[in-house]
Amino acid sequence: MAVGLQEARSDSPAEPPGPASARFSTLPPRKPKAPPWAKACIALGAVLLVLAAGTLTAAYGVTYRYESKLKRTDILGDLSDKQSTYTEGPLNFLILGSDDRKNDPSFAASEGLRSDTIMLAHVDKTLTKTYIVSIPRDSYVDIPASDDGKWQGGKDKINAAYNFGGPALTAKTVQQLTNVTLNGAFILDFSSVRKLVSIVGGVTVCIPFSMSSIHTERKWKKGCNFLTPDASQDFMRQRKTVPGGDFGRMQNQQRVILAVAKKMTSRGVITDPKKLDKLLSTVAESVTVDENLNLPDLALGLKNVRPDNLRCTTLPFLTDDLQTPAGSSVELDPVKGEELYAAMRDDTMDAYMAANPPSNTGQAGACS
């Protein structure tokens, strides 16, 4: 799930006008339309990550061609609301993301496997609006004991839960922190975003500052920048040269993801059978879902979700420099945090966002 979030803009250029005679006399053969499920699922996947990063785009097709590529595991256990249909809201989903950097020298000093991205996606009662709540990975929280007994429980950075007990312990930690009922969960290989950027032919993102990469010689100017697949991955990894550090990085990830989402749902992708197949295959191979999640039902229930109805915020915090045994951490604001959790539980996120504009939270706004 960053400071100064702006309203989303489409990256797709307008179709150039031409003489009327040319348009009517030389019309190319009409391309077959993508099936309705594809449009619904691509939009849905674009919202729930690509945030679950394109996760659900394969929902209906997954039963056939893409089923063998999709991975399932028990993430939620008894935390999940075992509903049989997703046609009634509100709904809440846990999204975990990790960037595979085993070959990155700067990543070699890291201890254990940790989740780089932790988000909650709240879909409102009407099943048309989605709110993405990012949880700072360095948030200092209570982490329950792991099932194997190797972690006895205690306080640490929230992304350590993945190392202590995998996605299941991360889910327990988030549920204990927020008391929000979870209807499903996804684990995203965040490096797959690079593949998605490649499929859609690159994306344009606009930033309110200049920044550079500590891993390469790339620089990005204040304003709009076109990102190739390699540049997009490099861009999303940066935090040391980004205002706000981890919070700035979360916003940049949102910018790339929404740009991909808009390109994914554009006519040039969804009406191109080869691109569509690559897209569905990529997201199916890049996502692990909770074993109880029914993707076809979910896609049907959320067919009206659109990227333009996506809003983002981050858990309110008091400081991002809390000194702890785990190192410098983020101290969450318990009072304002409970207001946000209650808004998710009560499906009043519209009112919460109106009462907590960017000037108050520093984090709320459109996912751009």
Rank of each mutant, 00 (worst) to 15 (best):
Arg23Asp: 08
Ala284Val: 08
Ser359Tyr: 03
Arg30Thr: 14
Lys275Val: 10
Arg249Asp: 05
Leu127Ala: 02
Gly89Glu: 07
Asn103Ser: 15
Ile135Glu: 01
Ala34Pro: 14
Gln238Met: 15
Ala8Cys: 10
Ser192Arg: 02
Leu298Lys: 09
Leu79Tyr: 04
Val62Pro: 00
Val180Ser: 05
Ser191Asp: 15
Leu300His: 10
Arg137Glu: 03
Ser281Val: 09
Gly89Arg: 06
Pro358Ala: 13
Phe24Met: 09
Arg249Phe: 11
Val256Met: 03
Pro229Trp: 01
Phe164Arg: 09
Val260Phe: 08
Val287Tyr: 01
Phe24Pro: 00
Leu276Glu: 01
Thr73Glu: 15
Thr265Met: 11
Leu76His: 00
Pro167Met: 05
Leu318Arg: 13
Val283Pro: 00
Gln176Leu: 14
Trp220Gln: 11
Leu48Pro: 03
Lys157Gln: 11
Gln253Glu: 12
Asn304Cys: 01
Ala53Ile: 12
Ser213Arg: 08
Val335Thr: 14
Thr228Ile: 11
Ala58Glu: 11
Cys312Thr: 14
Asp297Met: 14
Arg239Asp: 06
Leu76Glu: 03
Ala366Asp: 15
Gln233Lys: 12
Tyr162Arg: 08
Asp347Phe: 07
Leu169Glu: 06
Ala2Phe: 11
Thr288Asp: 04
His122Val: 01
Leu340Gly: 05
Ile132Met: 14
Thr319Ala: 02
Ala326Ile: 08
Val62Gln: 14
Ser134Pro: 01
Pro36Val: 13
Thr314Phe: 01
Thr216Ser: 15
Asp138Glu: 10
Ser10Tyr: 05
Lys195Gln: 15
Thr361Arg: 03
Ser12Ala: 13
Leu113Asp: 14
Pro32His: 04
Asp147Met: 05
Lys33Tyr: 07
Val305Ala: 05
Glu111Arg: 12
Lys71Trp: 03
Ser115Arg: 00
Lys195Thr: 14
Ala43Arg: 15
Phe317Met: 10
Ile135Ser: 00
Gln323Lys: 14
Val242His: 02
Asn183Phe: 00
Phe235Tyr: 12
Tyr60Cys: 09
